[in-house]
Nucleic acid binder design. Structure first.
Lengths: 225, 225
DNA sequence: CAATTAGTGGAACGGCTGCTCCACTTACCT
DNA sequence: AGGTAAGTGGAGCAGCCGTTCCACTAATTG
């Protein structure tokens, strides 16, 4: 049943063809899901998504029987972009520069899409389509790290497990600061990159202002929206 | 109605005279809350706390009318310990060592108590008792940073707003890794401290093992337990 | 232009939440 | 001991949630 997960470009023409209006609704649901996930994160009510898509809840559930199906569908493109980032970083003639750009892009993607941040750090063994893309990216990453180390720019004790570690840390900052100081993560990253290079201190992005900090913490006090 | 609530007999026993069994129940609720908050974080059901305390929900709500009252009560001690950490760090003859110990302790407190992690990073303007303690700590922290900078060990562009930034990052790591790799945060902190000192790379704690990483991400995939 | 289904929306269900109400119980004071 | 108000527990309310069901609608096909 769940064997085929359509690539977003080619709507369902590969295996089953949905009725025209059904396919249109499917796309509307995905658009709404992407929109809401990006704004509010992954744990948003099903009703809310259906409402925003302008369809009944039943339609959503028939098309995406489980929550994971919906998530996989919504983030398929972005997951592909993610693995492309890895490939591009690998293609960079300067491995260290490639590494830095890679990390920066990843963190930026987290910062720009709250749902995607959750996908990257939280929902690992989700639908097969995502997992496959993830594995391809992981392999490319290993190569990237090897080269940066061989070039003598990346510290040799940097582990590939440190990448999700960075992502988790970044997620913490990003979810906390999104509304009041959406660029706060850059400062964390500035600190981290520096220690990955094991070089002397370089200029950092500006720290949070006092009011940014205040508003960040205010906002977070009412989690259960 | 009447202004005075207490009879003139024993007006001030800590400002509040509850009936003996009421006071005992109050303590039972606080104990249960501390226990559950530490395990499951701040957003745990009121019923669950009452059940674990062995009292009815009404008892809980009469004693702690709002959620914030309960949180403030449960974490009063720990918040005091937190401000003491700052004071102790300030008393350290070596300001840089004091700074490092301070950061380490803070992150450890987050790692050991999921609820407290939330209190520190998420619920800022909560009950006054907590806020007051927080301010005292903030002032001591400013002094600590000044001294460490004056000693030439802490980089001069370190901002006091970077401390919550660290805490947010640490929270991200800690909430993600608590079950599978409860010491993962130490590695992040190792990286960070290094870049705060702007010195050459030093040995780091071990990275996550492959299985630790896997189990971490597995666990997180089913958030709505 | 029917006839045939795939497709639809929204009501409804069961389970959870924070919180309140009220008939009872029990500690305290004399 | 006995009166009384403080204190109690749990049923119950309103409001969410994910999910299912089913009477209806309309795209497709011949």
């Amino acid at each position: 049943m769940t064997e085929e997960i359509c690539h977003s470009k080619e709507p369902a023409r590969g295996g089953r063809n949905l009725r025209a209006d059904a396919e249109r609704n499917r796309e509307r649901v995905l658009d709404a899901a992407r929109e809401v996930f990006a704004e509010q994160g992954l744990d948003v009510s099903t009703n809310e998504i259906a409402r925003r898509a302008g369809v009944g809840v039943a339609t959503l559930f028939r098309r995406f029987p489980s929550r994971e199906d919906l998530i996989a569908g919504a983030f398929a493109e972005k997951m592909h972009a993610y693995s492309e980032v890895t490939a591009k970083a690998l293609a960079d003639p300067d491995p260290w520069h490639g590494f830095c750009v890679y990390i920066e892009r990843l963190c930026r993607m987290q910062a720009e899409d709250r749902g995607f941040a959750d996908v990257l750090t939280m929902t690992f063994p989700t639908a097969k389509a995502l997992e496959e893309e993830r594995n391809r990216a992981a392999n490319a990453l290993t190569d990237l790290l090897e080269r940066a180390k061989a070039a003598g720019r990346l510290r040799s004790d940097f582990a590939h497990q440190d990448v999700p570690l960075i992502l988790m840390a970044n997620a913490g900052v990003v979810t906390a600061t999104r509304d009041a100081a959406p660029d706060a993560w850059r400062r964390l990253l500035g600190y981290l990159i520096q220690s990955f290079a094991a070089e002397v201190a370089q200029p950092l992005p500006d720290p949070l202002t006092k009011t940014q900090l205040y508003r960040t913490l205010i906002r977070l006090s009412r989690r259960p929206h």
